[in-house]
């Protein structure tokens, strides 16, 4: 699940920023990609793709820094899939 989730998340980020070279551990905030519009799109993408609802207390910057941390978030929110 995690590897697949990471790839799907990376595909989403790369589709928005095709010129960027991003791997699963890179901090997308450090790359300067994230504004409130993209953050909203990320949340919508994760909720739709992985059929989860992200509660307010999980909406922390560290959960969205990289494809890896986002896939870990997905795993936490969908334990049955792990």
């Amino acid at each position: 699940m995690s590897a697949n989730a990471k790839e799907q998340i990376l595909d989403f980020v790369r589709a928005r920023y095709p010129q960027a070279e991003i791997d699963e551990t890179q901090d997308i905030f450090a790359l300067g990609f994230v504004n409130s519009l993209f953050a909203m799109e990320l949340v919508m993408f994760i909720e739709k793709t992985f059929e989860v609802t992200i509660p307010n207390d999980e909406l922390k910057i560290d959960n969205f820094r990289s494809a890896e941390t986002m896939s870990e978030l997905v795993d936490r929110l969908s334990p049955a899939r792990v």
């Binding site: 953050a39 909203m40 949340v43 207390d57 910057i61």
Partner: peptide, 17 residues
Amino acid sequence: LGPSGFTAGMVLTGTLD
């Protein structure tokens, strides 16, 4: 209402949308 910190902007973004 909603989260604080970096994701607080999403309340505004989503609502304006």
